[in-house]
């Protein structure tokens, strides 16, 4: 519970948020349309990375910095929920349902695969 550790949590959390902003913008520029592909790419890649970090069984501090702070801040739940509810409000029901179900299926598969890879490497 040191000041240095929590400074690292703040710095890596900020870096994760910036990476999400950049990846989302890059993907949205390439995949136009109503479906928020940028956040899907961010969240599925984050789930793969977090599964990997958890499978590697790192020390408490390393897992807090890399997993909770960096990967956790890179992924987002709030934007996903706003995207789904906003699409439903705009009567884009296929987009809303596809985003909700597709993100869950791909997110769970990515987290499970990442964890399996991490456990095999550890």
């Amino acid at each position: 519970m040191s000041v240095l550790l929590w400074s690292g949590v703040a710095a890596l959390g900020g870096a994760g948020a910036v990476l999400r902003f950049l990846v989302d913008a890059r993907v949205r520029a390439r995949v136009p349309g109503a479906f928020p592909a940028g956040i899907l790419v961010v969240n599925v890649s984050a789930s793969l990375a977090l599964g990997l970090v958890s499978g590697l069984a790192l020390s408490h501090d390393a897992a807090l910095l890399l997993g909770t702070a960096f990967v956790g801040a890179y992924s987002t739940f709030s934007t996903w929920m706003l995207d789904v509810s906003g699409a439903a409000r705009d009567r884009l029901l296929a987009v809303a349902a596809g985003n909700l179900v597709g993100s869950m299926v791909l997110g769970l598969a990515a987290a499970a695969a990442g964890r399996a890879i991490g456990l095999a490497l550890a």
Binding site: N43, S54, V71, T76, T79, G107, A111, R115
Partner: peptide, 24 residues
Amino acid sequence: RPFLTTGICGGLTTFSTLQLELVR
């Protein structure tokens, strides 16, 4: 706006931890 939305809300919430918790 980016400070509050992409920054604070995005940093406070997490999709990946939810998925990993469900898998575990």
